[in-house]
Design a protein around this nucleic acid. Sequence first.
RNA 1: GGAGGGGUGGCAGAGCGGUUGAAUGCACUGGUCUUGAAAACCAGCGAGGAUGAAAGUCCUCCGAGAGUUCGAAUCUCUCCUCCUCCGCCA
Length: 449
Amino acid sequence: MFVSCLCRHAINAHPALTHSLEKSMLDPKRIRSEPELLAKQLLKKKFELDIARLSKLDAARKQLQLETEALQSERNSRSKMIGKAKAAGEDVASILKSMASIKSDLEQKKEQLTRLQQELSDYLMTVPNVPDVTVPEGDDESANAVIASWGKPRQFDFEVKDHAELGEALQQGLDFASASKIAGARFVVMQGRTAQLHRALIQFMLDIHTREHGYTELYVPYLVNSESLRGTGQLPKFEADLFKLQGPQEYYLIPTAEVPVTNLVRDEIIDAERLPLKFTSHTPCFRSEAGSYGKDTKGMIRQHQFEKVELVQVVQPEASNQALEELTEHAEKILQLLNLPYRKVILCGGDLGFGSAKTYDLEVWLPSQNCYREISSCSCCTDFQARRMQARWRNPSTGKPALVHTVNGSALAIGRTLVAIFENFQDASGKIRIPEILVPYMHGLETLD
RNA sequence: GGAGGGGUGGCAGAGCGGUUGAAUGCACUGGUCUUGAAAACCAGCGAGGAUGAAAGUCCUCCGAGAGUUCGAAUCUCUCCUCCUCCGCCA
């Protein structure tokens, strides 16, 4: 019922707003009122806000807009006069004559204004979200701070193998050679019981989130339009990371379910009592991995195509910090139920994603690498995506529409979870013990061999 | 793929090219009435932007974009999208 209600809303979506300026990431009012503070905050993210350029553009915009609107006003009132005069049977030739210059002036100003607004908006679309005050300073991942650890890495009394080696040795395991024949590098074929385990993980995670964490499951398109990608912040800056389809329609393969799911609320005004919206969705994710040549080339850590169970919350602004904590715990719960050792890391400013104000990464222990590797990333995007999407709620205390906040996270990346299970639960003979909680999903099967 | 019909405010649904940002109904909000509620009656009620201390004033928006016009929800073109019928198909 809940979902069908949302769908109806989506069909009768508000028309997109016309002012391109509104689709910027920063609050235009904030830019004007406290540019230095903003610039300082963005510096934490290693982004230099060009205040001089912004204020210059905005001043010009202001002037032009005033002039344009004055001309429009003049045109409107004279047009009305013509209407009245005609109705009264009077001669309108003189008024008509005076319109000529207004018209050409207006056209000129309008064109300039549009160009200026476009320039302003183009720049603002490349400005990242402002980091939260609790985000630590730092240039790169080395400055990320571990804030919690769960579980103890197991001590092995034999030489551990990595997941690729383990998977290729299994009767029904991983087949990278076939994948590269069929498609190329960074793909995998899973066989038999391994494919089944992979599917079981998806089923298990969705069950927990829908039955215990209160999320509504969604099935969504895997192809999206560019508007959706702008909404969540992948475009215009990160087009190179995406797969774009050829053909008459402009389609992109989704890099994460966050894109279609979050965009459900694009151009919507949501009633306060419907918040928070909590959605979970399993989708494949497609990433070009441009710029990661040479990284994780072996195995299925970094693939062009992988599965993920995603969590998304759409909340009132005051609730977003708490929602991030809660959503991260929901992801952690999966790792705990699978009994996989992990740690929780808060990303520093320099490592923070474009649209995120605050991000927790969950890193799972990988014995073969003797380190923790990212398996989930949970982000609070505050009103960054909401502003781009014009996703709002009606604040009952003011009666006015206000931007929502969006929170999202992986819970979890399926491929990497499979990797973690292989590596953590291997034995000396190369067999894999299946985590207890998944055994029912495997119809009683307890080991892969 | 072929033929046809639609897209207007939270919803439903009017709208001869000129005081129409948009009738009307429902919903919603405030008030009157009532012991209370309902009903009835009265009033209010779209969004965004500019300017301003505020009140206010002005601009834009009737699927999107372009055009015609002094003036477009209304006329023209392109696109998107929804619906109905036929064909095809998982």
